[in-house]
Structures are given as structure tokens and as C-alpha cells.
């Protein structure tokens, strides 16, 4: 019910009570021992009708609001704490996941490095082997070339020596050009034996 209506009603009742105060019907003969006074009753109805809205507005509503606000605040604090807890949990799981990921990445990197190093080693070793091969081959070729050269030199020396020896053996009348060619041809055929 409207509080101001209650206030007005209370005032009306108080006025009625004071108006009928002196009339005889307000004090029934039968209840004289109890000092019943209906005028007082009516006035008290008015007083109490005033009391209800005043207490409601002045005392009950602020108290209820404060308690509701406090309860609400407590509830919100609890929900906030819960939210923070959930957030922390997600952060933790995130962090853990990231840690695991980082670990895996690091392991992979290390593996890659090891593999790379192994590859490099293999490569280096094969390169070294190749170079050694090449060195050996070039040395062999050089040796071959030296041998050939020496053989050729020796051959010319042999021709010269043979010519000198033949000159001395057969005499001076022989055409040296022709002899030289003969000897050379001969040596060519001889070469197979060397």
C-alpha cells in the first residue's frame, strides 16, 4: 500500500480518536475494570499506521539496501575470485603448453644441428677423400709423364750413343742422315721390349 496513504490514514485516525475522546460510548460499562477506551484504540490505530511507513522508510529500506548491497558485493567478490582462478588456470595451462612446445622445438633444433653437423662431417670427409684421390691421380700422372719424358730422353741418348758407336764401327762414308733414320726406325721397333 502507498506509504503516504498510510500516513494520511494514520493522521485521520488520530484526529478521529481525539474527537470522540469525551463521548460516553467509547467507555463501555462492561469493560470498566479493564479501563477500555475505544477513543484510545482508534488513536493508537492512527499512531501505528504512522509508525509502519516511518519505520519502513527510515529504517527498513536503508537497512535492506545496505545488506543487499553487501551481499551483492560479497557475491561479486566471490565470482571475481572465481573468474581470476579460472583465468589463472588457463594461463597456467597456456604456459605449460608453451613450455612443452618450446621444449619440443629446442629438441628438434638440437636434432637438426646434430644432423647438419653429421652431414657436414660426411661432406668434409668425402671432400678430403676426393682431394686425396685427385692428389694421388695427379702424382701418378706426373710420374707417368716424368717416365715418358725420361724414356724419350734416354731414347735420344741411346740413338746418339748408338750413332756414335756405329760411326766409330762402320766408318765415315755412310750418310749420317739415312743411318739416323734407320736407327730410329729400329729403335721404334725395339721399344716394345722396353
Amino acid at each position: 500500500m502507498n506509504k503516504f496513504a498510510l500516513l494520511g490514514l494514520g493522521a485521520i485516525f488520530i484526529i478521529i480518536g481525539f474527537v470522540v475522546k469525551d463521548q460516553s460510548w467509547t467507555r463501555p460499562e462492561m469493560f470498566a475494570g479493564l479501563q477500555l477506551d475505544l477513543g484510545k484504540t482508534i488513536t493508537n490505530i492512527g499512531v501505528f499506521l504512522l509508525f509502519i511507513p516511518v519505520i519502513n522508510m527510515y529504517f527498513y529500506v536503508p537497512l535492506k539496501e545496505a545488506m543487499d548491497a553487501r551481499n551483492h558485493e560479497l557475491e561479486s567478490t566471490f565470482t571475481e575470485a572465481e573468474q581470476l582462478r579460472v583465468q589463472m588456470q588457463t594461463l597456467k595451462s597456456d604456459y605449460e603448453a608453451r613450455l612443452i612446445k618450446t621444449e619440443a622445438e629446442a629438441r628438434e633444433t638440437i636434432q637438426n644441428q646434430i644432423k647438419e653437423a653429421q652431414n657436414l662431417r660426411q661432406q668434409l670427409m668425402s671432400e678430403a677423400a676426393d682431394r686425396a684421390d685427385a692428389l694421388i691421380r695427379s702424382a701418378q700422372a706426373e710420374i707417368e709423364q716424368e717416365k715418358n719424358q725420361t724414356i724419350a730422353t734416354i731414347r735420344t741418348h741411346v740413338v746418339d750413343l748408338t750413332l756414335a758407336a756405329a760411326q766409330k764401327v762402320i766408318g765415315e762414308n755412310m750418310d749420317s742422315e739415312k743411318n739416323r733414320r734407320l736407327i730410329a726406325e729400329f729403335i721404334e721397333t725395339v721399344e716394345v721390349a722396353s
Partner: peptide, 22 residues
């Protein structure tokens, strides 16, 4: 005291009963 007077208590009882009916 107001609560030790029957006349006044009837007033409060009337309000209570009327409020319950309301």
C-alpha cells in the same frame, strides 16, 4: 507503557488482523 494498555493493544491487533486480511 503503550503495550500495557488493553485499549492500545486492541488497536495494534486490529491493524494486524486487517493487514492479514488485506
Amino acid at each position: 507503557t503503550p503495550t500495557a494498555d488493553w485499549s492500545l493493544n486492541i488497536g495494534m491487533a486490529v491493524i494486524t488482523v486487517v493487514y492479514v486480511q488485506y
